[in-house]
Simulated assay, not measured.
Amino acid sequence: MNISLELIEENGGLYLYVPSDKRFNDTKELINRIRNFDITVVKVDKLSLDQMKKIWALCRDYGELRGYTKEEMREALENEFCNSRDIEYFSISPFKKDGCSMRIATDFIQFIIEHAIKHEFNLIVYEGEGENRKPRHLQEIAPDIRRYVIACLLKKRCAVCGKLVDVDLHHWDSVATIGGYKYDDGLQTRFLPLCREHHSEFHAIGKQRFEKKWHIEGIMLSRNLVKKLKEVYPNHFQAFKEGKNEI
């Protein structure tokens, strides 16, 4: 008998996750074997159950926005992801032999998030069931928050709520620390794109409370990124000089 399993420690207990398509007798036999035999631990690089749940949640809610089922959305996104990286198609189930690694799953989650931003969909993921069902914004689940903020900057999208209208390039650090806007070359302070509502909230509650509330902060920019952002935010980066100190 060969059954792929996952043993998870949760809330002070151990839970053995068994594929739902296995017969009751097979599961019962497995439990008896676990009780009566020594267990050899073999490390396998497979995605976690949490990663699998995140991928399905992303595909479900992204699919609803685009008119696809979660299965159709997952297949379309995975095809594009695999083609862009020249890798073989994989399963997003940790219970299958071709289940992807944790690293691939992490990259795939980031890919889905950036894909939604690139195509201007305000994707909010809902997790849990019934009364425990709650929305989670993309910055809460993005594996790489810097890449998430960059994607939002390039699309002029609020990094908190996803709005695409009335979005400002917010100086996370006070521009007064560098002498004012005329000295701003984009390379000395951190930035974050915010809609008017969240821009006002930042100034009302302060940097620390804002960061704690929304789980996000501004990022430093590279010269190449400043070049791109000058086209998106033409009134900013007055002191930036192209070609200066280029490598």
Rank of each mutant, 00 (worst) to 15 (best):
N2H: 13
C59H: 04
F240Q: 05
L77D: 04
C100M: 07
Q188S: 14
M52E: 15
I87R: 07
S174F: 12
S93Y: 08
D144K: 10
A116I: 01
Y68K: 14
N2L: 10
V160Y: 07
P135M: 02
E10P: 04
T40P: 00
E231I: 03
E217A: 13
W214K: 10
L14T: 07
Y183M: 03
D184K: 01
I216S: 11
C152L: 04
F24E: 10
M220C: 07
K97C: 03
E197F: 11
K97H: 11
N2F: 11
D50K: 11
S48Q: 02
N245Y: 11
H203A: 06
K230S: 12
F37T: 12
M102H: 00
G243K: 10
I124C: 06
I109M: 00
I104D: 01
H215Y: 15
I39F: 14
E6F: 08
A176W: 12
A105E: 04
V18R: 05
R196G: 09
L138V: 07
D61S: 05
L14N: 08
E71Y: 09
A105M: 00
G179Q: 11
Y233C: 03
S20F: 13
F90G: 04
D184R: 01
C100R: 00
K22E: 14
Q188G: 13
F240S: 03
F95L: 07
L47G: 14
E197S: 14
E242K: 01
L58H: 10
M73N: 07
E71F: 07
D168T: 13
P94V: 05
F90Q: 00
D185K: 02
V42I: 14
V232Q: 00
Y233S: 00
V18F: 12
E211Y: 10
